[in-house]
Design a protein around this nucleic acid. Structure first.
Length: 921
RNA sequence: GCGGGCGUGUUGUAAUUGGUAGCCAAGCCAGACUUAGGAUCUGGUGCCGUGAGGCGUAUGGGUUCGAGUCCCUUCGCCCGCACCA
C-alpha cells in the first residue's frame, strides 16, 4: 500500500469534524491553554501559501499542548467588516454581506484542507449582529465612562456628573481633551446641550474636533495611506485637511499603563520597542512665557525636554493650527500670516510629512519674553511644529536642536551656543553631553545635571512645572462608510444619546446604494426611517479595529446573549497564552486591543490586565517570481543563461508552470494565446527561467495556492515544508523547489510501517541504541516546540527516520512514540498510522512521550575539564572507566595537551552525580 | 537622522550557546534498478591542491588555550520610527 495522502487526509478531516475532536469545553480539572491566531480578513483572492504559516505553527503548538494534557482553546473566526467588500459593492451593487459570505466559505474550505485543529463551534464574525452587539456594547460603556487619574481607572460618567453637581471641577483629576474648570453653580446653569458638550471633554468615547483628510467627492474621511500627493488613490479626487467632529477613543488616557505593562509581557523586544516608540513617553517641563501682541499680554505655554537650554532661546514657534496663532498675529502681519496658513492648509498630511526638510514659516509680529533672561524674542509660525503634540508651541534653541537650527539659518535668526567648545557653524549640537556655558546659574554643570537643575529652578520660581508627554493620540473612531458597525447613538435635539443596552444590536439598515449621498452624507444617511423613536441615528460607522479589539474574549463564550463573556468562562480561560500573527499590527490592533482590555478590566468585566501573554510574529512569506526572456520583436524566448547575447524583454511567467526554474514549454504555450506558437532557445535542452523575490501577488504570477500543494503533495507535506523553510519569525520567499524532500520523508515514514502491501511492524524489543535515538529525539522535539524552533525539529525527525532505515527498525516500541511526536506536525498521516498501530481513539488523546534522559546518556558520562577553576570543555567517556583511564584520555586530547604542556593543573569533574577530582599533572 | 536585527557552501538553513563549522534538505555529479518516471536506492559534493596539506563563517583588528558565537572598525542588507521639541 502506497502513502495515499489524498484518501488519508480526506478521511481524517471528516472524522475530526464528525467527532468534534477539537471542541473545547471548560474543565476545572485540567489546566487551560489558549492559542490564538490573528483572524483573517476574508479577501476575494483567497489564501495563498504565505497565509497559513502562522496558523500551522499555532496548530502544531495547540496539538502539542493537548498531548501534554492541557485543555486547549484554539478558535478561529473572520474579521469580516472592511473596505474591499464595500468598494466591490459600490462598483457592482453586490451587497457586501453577500461578497463576505462567499469569501468566508472559500477561506473555510481552504483552511479545512490543511487540517487545523480549530474548535469551529466557537467561530465568530465581526459582521454578525450577535457579535457586533458586543462591539456596540463596549462602545456605549466607553461613552458612559471617564478616566479618573486619581484612581488610575475608568469610572462611570454618572460619578463625574455627581461630582460636578456638588463641587464643579474642583478636585477632579481626569484624562480630558482640554483643561477646563467650572463651579457647581456654573455646571447647574448649563443647558442640556452645553452639559453634553462639556462631558465630551471627559468621556472615553467622545465626539471631538480633529484634523482629518477629507475628500469631498468621495464624501469620506480617508486614512493617510489612502491619499497620494494630495489626491485620493481611488478616483484621483483632491483631498484637503479639514477640521471635523469625529467620534474618538481616549486611548491616550491609558498611555502610561500601556507602556508600563509591556514589561509584564512575553513579546519580542523589537515589538515592545515599537510600541514604546509609538506611545512615545517623554519627560520634560512645561514653561510659561509672557507673550506680547502690541500691548496685549498673553501667557504662552510650551513643552520642552531640554529645560537646560532655555538660555539659548532665540525665537518661539507656533504650530499653524495652534489657537495662539490668532491671538498673537500682529495686525500689520495679518495678510502674510493668513497667506501662510492657507498654503499650509492646502497641503495634505502626507505632503507635510514628505517635505520633511523643507523649511517654511512666517513671522507673527509678536514677541515673547524669556522668563530667565528677560530677552525679547520673536514668535514665528511654522508647520514644523505640530499642533497635536505638547502645547503646539515651542521655544526654539537653534544651537542644540537641528530642526530649530535649520529654521534659524533659513530665516537668519541668531544662534547662541550653550555648551563649552561646541561648534555650531555647520550644524546644531544635539547630543545631551558637555558642560554648560552662557547659561547663568547653569554654567559649569554637565547637561545631565543641568536639565533637572533648570526644571527645579523653573518650578521654584513659578515659571513652569515637570511634565510627562506622550505621543500616543486618541483614536479617530468614525468612518463615513456602510460596511462597519453602526454607532448605537441617536441624536435628540442635536444631543448624542446612548441607545439603551436592551435595544442592541443596532443592525445595519438595508440601503439601495453604498455610495455617500449627493450632499456628502455617509451612505447610512440613505437608510429610510432609520431612527430611534423618530430621533435620527448616527450615520457613520466604526473602523476596522473596533471588531477586532475584543474578539479573543468572545471566543471564550461565543454564544452568550447576556454578556460579551460570562464571568465564569472568563475566569477559566482568562487571556490568550499564545498569540501568533504578523508584525503589521504592532501599533494598530495590538495597541487598541490592549486598551480595550484594560478598559473592560477597569469596569470589572474581565479578570486580566493584558489580553495576550506571549506573542510571536511569524515572518512574511514573499513570492518568488520567475521570468522568461523574449527577444525583442519576436516570439522567441531565450533561456536565462544565454539572454545576454540578445536584446530581450523580461516577462513574468506563472510559477506554477515552472519546476526548479525549468520552464514547462508545453504548459507555457497553453498559458496565454500570445505564446501559443512561441519558439525557444534552450541551454542543455532546457529552458532556464530567471527569478526574483517580490511580494506575492497575482500581477507577478507568483502566487502559490495551498490547495494546489495539497493536491500534489498533501496537507501534511505542506505543513511540514512551511515549517522546514526556516525559522518561523524570519521572512523568506516561498520556493516550491525543495518540497520533494519533505514529501519523500513522509513516504519513508509510511514505509516504516508498510513494505508495499505488507505491514512490517514488529513487537521486537528495542535495543539501547534505538532507545537512545528515540529519547534524544523526544528531548529535541520537546525543547524545539517550546522554543518555536520548528524547522530544527523537522530536521531531527529526518535524522531519526534515516537512522531507523539504517537499522531496518520497524519496532512498535520505537514507532509508536515517534508517531505521537510527529502528530502535531503532520496530523493526518499520524492519525492513520496510529490506527494501524491498533488505536481506536484519535491520536489527539494520546500523551506526549516521556523523555528519559537515562537512555540518552546510556553508558557514557560527561566529564567537564577544568582549568584554573573554570570549565574549559566537556568530553564523553564510558561511565565505567577508571580514574586512571579518564586521566589518560583527557591527557590524550589534543586540546588538553596544550594545557598540560603549559605545566598547569587540570582537574576532571564527573558530571552528573558526585564530583571526583582527577589531578592530571 | 534615530532605534532594532542580520551577514555561514550553488540555494534554504544548522551548530550542545565559547569547544571538531557546514547537521537536515534542495541542487549538481556518478552509479544501481527500471519500458518509462517529477518513482526508489547507494555514493560523492565548502574552496585550492594529484597528494600530504593549506585556506575558509562580509571586512580589518582585539580578548581567549580555543571565536560563526564576545568586544571594537569598516562595508552591505532588512525592518520599524521619523519634524514628538
Amino acid at each position: 500500500m502506497d502513502y495515499n495522502f489524498k484518501e488519508i487526509e480526506r478521511k481524517w478531516q471528516s472524522r475530526w469534524a464528525e467527532n468534534h475532536t477539537f471542541k473545547a469545553v471548560e474543565d476545572e480539572s485540567r489546566p487551560k491553554y489558549y492559542v490564538l491566531d490573528m483572524f483573517p480578513y476574508p479577501s476575494g483572492a483567497g489564501l495563498h501559501v504565505g497565509h497559513p504559516l502562522g496558523y500551522i505553527a499555532s496548530d502544531i503548538f495547540s496539538r502539542y499542548k493537548r498531548l501534554c494534557g492541557f485543555n486547549v482553546l484554539h478558535p478561529m473566526g473572520y474579521d469580516a467588516f472592511g473596505l474591499p467588500a464595500e468598494q466591490y459593492a459600490i462598483q457592482t451593487g453586490q451587497h457586501p454581506a453577500v461578497t463576505t459570505e462567499k469569501n468566508i466559505s472559500r477561506y473555510r474550505e481552504q483552511l479545512d484542507r490543511i487540517g487545523f485543529s480549530y474548535d469551529w463551534s466557537r467561530e465568530v464574525r465581526t459582521c454578525d449582529p450577535e457579535y457586533y452587539k458586543w462591539t456596540q456594547w463596549a462602545f456605549l460603556k466607553m461613552f458612559g465612562s471617564w478616566y479618573d487619574r486619581n484612581l488610575d481607572k475608568a469610572r462611570p460618567v454618572e460619578d463625574l456628573v455627581r461630582a460636578f453637581e456638588t463641587s464643579g471641577t474642583e478636585g477632579i483629576n481626569a484624562a480630558c481633551t482640554e483643561e477646563i474648570s467650572f463651579t457647581a453653580e456654573q455646571w447647574k446653569s448649563m443647558t442640556d446641550k452645553e452639559k453634553s458638550d462639556t462631558l465630551m471633554n471627559w468621556r472615553i468615547a467622545y465626539q471631538g474636533e480633529t484634523s482629518v483628510n477629507w475628500c469631498p467627492q468621495l464624501g469620506t474621511v480617508l486614512a493617510n495611506d489612502e491619499v497620494k500627493e494630495g489626491y485620493s488613490v481611488r478616483g484621483g479626487f483632491p483631498v484637503e485637511q479639514k477640521k471635523m467632529t469625529q467620534w474618538q477613543l481616549r486611548v491616550s488616557a491609558y498611555a502610561s499603563r500601556l507602556l508600563d505593562d509591556l514589561e509584564t509581557l512575553d513579546w519580542t523586544d523589537s515589538l515592545k520597542e515599537m510600541q514604546r516608540n509609538w506611545i512615545g513617553k517623554s519627560q520634560g517641563a512645561e514653561m510659561h512665557f509672557k507673550a506680547y501682541n502690541g500691548d496685549k499680554e498673553y501667557d504662552m505655554v510650551i513643552f520642552t525636554t531640554r529645560a537646560d537650554t532655555v538660555f539659548g532661546v532665540t525665537f518661539m514657534v507656533l504650530a499653524p493650527e495652534s489657537e495662539w496663532v490668532e491671538k498673537l498675529t500682529a495686525p500689520e502681519r495679518k495678510t502674510e500670516v493668513e497667506e501662510y496658513l492657507a498654503a499650509v492648509r492646502k497641503k495634505t498630511e502626507r505632503e507635510r510629512l514628505s517635505e520633511t526638510r523643507k523649511v517654511t514659516g512666517v513671522f507673527s509680529g509678536s514677541y515673547a519674553v524669556n522668563p530667565l533672561t528677560g530677552d525679547r524674542v520673536p514668535i514665528w509660525i511654522s508647520e514644523y511644529v505640530l499642533a497635536g503634540y505638547g502645547t503646539g508651541a515651542i521655544m526654539a534653541v537653534p544651537a542644540h536642536d537641528s530642526r530649530d537650527y535649520a529654521f534659524a539659518r533659513h530665516f537668519n535668526l541668531p544662534v547662541i551656543p550653550l555648551i563649552e567648545g561646541c561648534d555650531v557653524s555647520e550644524s546644531s549640537f544635539d547630543a545631551k553631553e558637555g558642560t554648560m556655558c552662557n547659561s547663568g546659574f547653569l554654567d559649569g554643570l554637565s547637561v545631565k545635571e543641568a536639565i533637572p537643575a533648570a526644571i527645579d529652578y523653573v518650578e521654584k520660581h513659578g515659571i513652569g512645572r515637570r511634565k510627562v508627554n506622550f505621543r500616543l493620540r486618541d483614536a479617530i473612531f468614525s468612518r463615513q462608510r456602510y460596511w462597519g458597525e453602526p454607532f448605537p447613538i441617536y441624536y435628540k435635539d442635536g444631543i448624542p444619546q446612548a441607545l439603551p443596552f436592551d435595544s442592541l444590536p443596532l443592525t445595519l439598515p438595508e440601503i439601495n446604494e453604498f455610495k455617500p449621498t449627493e450632499t456628502g452624507e455617509p451612505p447610512l444617511a440613505r437608510a429610510k426611517d432609520w431612527s430611534y423613536a423618530s430621533y435620527p441615528f448616527e450615520t457613520s460607522t466604526m473602523p476596522g479595529f473596533a471588531g477586532s479589539s475584543a474578539y479573543y474574549l468572545r471566543y471564550m463564550d461565543p454564544h452568550n446573549a447576556q454578556a460579551l463573556v460570562g464571568k465564569d468562562k472568563n475566569a477559566y480561560w482568562r487571556n490568550v497564552d499564545l498569540y501568533i500573527g504578523g508584525t503589521e499590527h504592532a501599533t494598530g490592533h495590538l495597541i487598541y486591543s490592549r486598551f480595550w482590555n484594560k478598559f473592560l478590566y477597569d469596569l470589572g468585566y474581565v479578570c486580566e490586565k493584558e489580553p495576550f501573554k506571549k506573542l510571536i510574529n511569524q515572518g512574511m512569506i514573499q513570492g518568488r517570481s520567475n521570468f522568461v526572456y523574449r527577444i525583442v520583436g519576436t516570439n522567441t524566448f531565450v533561456s536565462c543563461g544565454l539572454k545576454d547575447s540578445y536584446e530581450t524583454t523580461e516577462i513574468h511567467v506563472d510559477v506554477n508552470i515552472v519546476h526548479n526554474d525549468r520552464l514547462d514549454l508545453e504548459a507555457f504555450r497553453k498559458w496565454m494565446p500570445d505564446f501559443a506558437d512561441a519558439e525557444f532557445i534552450l541551454e542543455d535542452g532546457e529552458y532556464v527561467c530567471g527569478y526574483a523575490v517580490e511580494k506575492m501577488s497575482k500581477s507577478m504570477f507568483n502566487v502559490v495556492n495551498p490547495d494546489m500543494i495539497c493536491d500534489t503533495y498533501g496537507a501534511d507535506t505542506l505543513r511540514l515544508y512551511e515549517m522546514f523553510l526556516g525559522p518561523l519569525e524570519q521572512s523568506k520567499p516561498w520556493d516550491t523547489k525543495g518540497i520533494d524532500g519533505v514529501n519523500r520523508f513522509l513516504k519513508r515514514v509510511w514505509r516504516l510501517f508498510y513494505d508495499r502491501d505488507a505491514l512490517i511492524l514488529t513487537d521486537e524489543k528495542a535495543t539501547p541504541g534505538e532507545l537512545k535515538s528515540l529519547h534524544k529525539l523526544i528531548g529535541k522535539v520537546q525543547t524545539d516546540i517550546e522554543a518555536f524552533s520548528f524547522n530544527t525539529s523537522v530536521s531531527a525527525f529526518m535524522i531519526a527516520v534515516n537512522e531507523l532505515y539504517e537499522h531496518d527498525c520497524h519496532k512498535r516500541e520505537i514507532l509508536e512514540p515517534l508517531i505521537i511526536l510527529l502528530s502535531p506536525f503532520c496530523p493526518h498521516i499520524a492519525e492513520e498510522l496510529w490506527e494501524v498501530l491498533g488505536h481506536k481513539e484519535s491520536i489527539s488523546y494520546a500523551s506526549f512521550p516521556e523523555y528519559v534522559e537515562a537512555y540518552t546518556i546510556e553508558n557514557s558520562c560527561t566529564y567537564a575539564v577544568s582549568f584554573n577553576g573554570k570549565t574549559r570543555f566537556t568530553i564523553d567517556l564510558p561511565r565505567t572507566m577508571s580514574k586512571e583511564d579518564v586521566e589518560a584520555n583527557v591527557r590524550a586530547l589534543d586540546q588538553t595537551a596544550k594545557y598540560v604542556a603549559g605545566g598547569n593543573i587540570v582537574k576532571v569533574i564527573v558530571v552528573p552525580g558526585k564530583i571526583v577530582n582527577v589531578v592530571v599533572k
